[in-house]
């Protein structure tokens, strides 16, 4: 069970991957409007994107990435049906992973 949505499409020689993750992405600098206390930082630090077993991109983030992060990247090659895997890890050590197949 995962909240990462992945859509990978092949067009010519390029595969474009778009993904959407569910995460609050708290910077740790925001104050709760009711209590006035700082909301503790809780954000994704690292996202690893893989095509088959090959790492295509590693993203390192701060809390400056918007809530429920969107990420898109491209690579050369890929074929319909090949797997794309996206894994994230946040500053509390939680992690989530999802994969989907490339659509031709």
């Amino acid at each position: 069970m995962s909240d990462i949505k992945i859509r990978a499409t092949l067009s010519g020689e390029e595969t474009t991957v778009k993904c959407l993750m569910s995460h609050p992405m708290e910077t740790g600098l925001r104050k709760d409007s009711k209590t006035g206390e700082l909301v503790p930082a809780h954000f994704i630090e690292e996202v690893v994107c893989k095509y088959k077993d090959e790492v295509i991109m590693t993203a390192n983030w701060s809390g400056g990435v918007s809530k429920n992060p969107y990420l898109s990247f491209k690579f050369k090659g890929g074929a319909a049906g090949d797997p794309i895997t996206v894994t994230w890890k946040d500053n509390k050590g939680e992690t989530q992973s999802a994969s989907d197949q490339i659509k031709g």
């Binding site: 095509y51 991109m57 993203a59 390192n60 990247f73 050369k76």
Partner: peptide, 11 residues
């Protein structure tokens, strides 16, 4: 805000 490291056949 973010850094992205590319490898393999990434564009």
């Amino acid at each position: 805000i973010a850094s992205f490291d590319f490898s393999g056949s990434a564009i």
